[in-house]
């Protein structure tokens, strides 16, 4: 365990020394400042102190203002985590090959270090990095909103584990390819490819699952029929095997619901309906957790095993 942390620490130093880390942290703080600069009331949007955009609402009918606040919050809560995980893959993709380049791995392994510890060290380093960058982002935006009096519940910070879990699922592929092919470019490309395939499998699987409980659009019925055949088995198998960080979106939605304020009740009515539909079309979280956990364990074991069989 200690060795894993020592290697993760080296990994973090490497990431931190890269420009992208500083850029990411800078952008997060900038976003926080932007949020702090804007105040939204039913009547107007106030930028800094003097610049005002009238919205024409009143305290009784704050429709437009609510839409804007809802837009900002759903951007922060549903889209930002995905963007963060995506950027983290790009930032960390090159790190494994850098860390295990010829002449470095030999020195690590000539010490009483087991090969799986190097693999886990690199993996854990990535998770800590993502937690760090997501933490900065969440804190900056939370403070930014609070500055103008729009307090969001502490549920907002539940996004942190969700972001890290999404990244954990994606980055296991980056680590696997990084160790196997020793190429950062290949690691990023394969990760994005499998992510994309996983997303397609998720979409098709959602339609399959939903077909049992929800009446769907007419045009989807043909597709449902198709999925009832052997193609459905392929989709289901792909869904179980591939990484599907998007499925954790259910959690994100619950967090968003928890964060929305009373003032947004009108918006909430439609949201409640959307959420119900979404929940019905979503495979059980337990299945997602199980298959994702299995994928992570399997790929880490495979990477460690193939590394331990290799002559350096």
């Amino acid at each position: 365990m200690r060795n894993i942390l020592l290697i993760a620490e080296e990994w973090l130093r490497l990431v931190r020394s890269q420009k992208s880390f500083r850029i990411l942290a800078g952008l997060s703080i900038l976003l926080g400042l932007l949020l702090a600069a804007v105040e939204i009331t039913p009547e107007e949007v106030k930028v800094l102190w003097s610049f005002r955009i009238p919205l024409g609402g009143t305290a009784e009918s704050p429709v437009l203002a609510n839409e804007i606040v809802y837009g900002i919050l759903s951007f922060l809560i549903t889209l930002l985590p995905l963007i963060t995980a995506f950027v983290a893959v790009f930032t960390t993709g090159g790190v494994v090959p850098e860390m295990i380049r010829k002449g470095r791995l030999e020195v690590l392994l000539a010490r009483p270090v087991r090969r799986y510890q190097v693999v886990l060290g690199a993996y854990v380093g990535g998770l800590v990095f993502t937690a760090l960058i997501a933490g900065i982002l969440l804190l900056a935006t939370w403070v930014g909103l609070a500055v103008r009096g729009r307090f969001i519940g502490p549920e907002y910070f539940l996004n942190l584990p969700v972001i890290v879990a999404q990244y954990a699922l994606i980055s296991v592929i980056t680590v696997w390819i990084g160790f196997t092919l020793r190429s950062g470019g290949a690691a990023i490309v394969v990760t994005l490819l499998l992510w994309f395939l996983g997303k397609m499998a998720s979409g098709a699987y959602a339609i399959m699952v939903a077909s049992k409980e929800l009446t769907m659009d007419k045009e989807l019925e043909g597709f449902q029929g198709f999925l009832a055949g052997p193609a459905g088995k392929v989709v289901a198998a792909a869904w179980w095997i591939l990484p599907k960080p998007g499925e954790l979106g259910v959690l994100t939605n619950q967090i968003l619901d928890a964060c929305l304020e009373d003032g947004l009740t009108r918006r909430l009515l439609t949201r409640a309906k959307q959420s119900a539909e979404l929940a019905a079309a979503t495979p059980p979280l337990a299945d997602v957790a199980f298959s994702s956990g299995a994928l992570i364990v399997f790929l880490l074991a495979l990477t460690s095993w193939s590394l331990s069989r290799r002559d350096l």
Binding site: R2, N3, L6, I7, E9, E10, R13, L14, S17, M99, R101, K102, G103, R104, E106, V107, L108, A110, R111, P112, V113
Partner: peptide, 24 residues
């Protein structure tokens, strides 16, 4: 072990590098 053609974690300082090795 002092290997031939060692490559170093360039972003670490001398102190960090030696201490990390000793800890490992």
């Amino acid at each position: 072990f002092l290997p031939e053609g060692q490559s170093f974690p360039e972003y670490m300082t001398a102190r960090q590098f030696v201490a990390q090795g000793a800890a490992l």
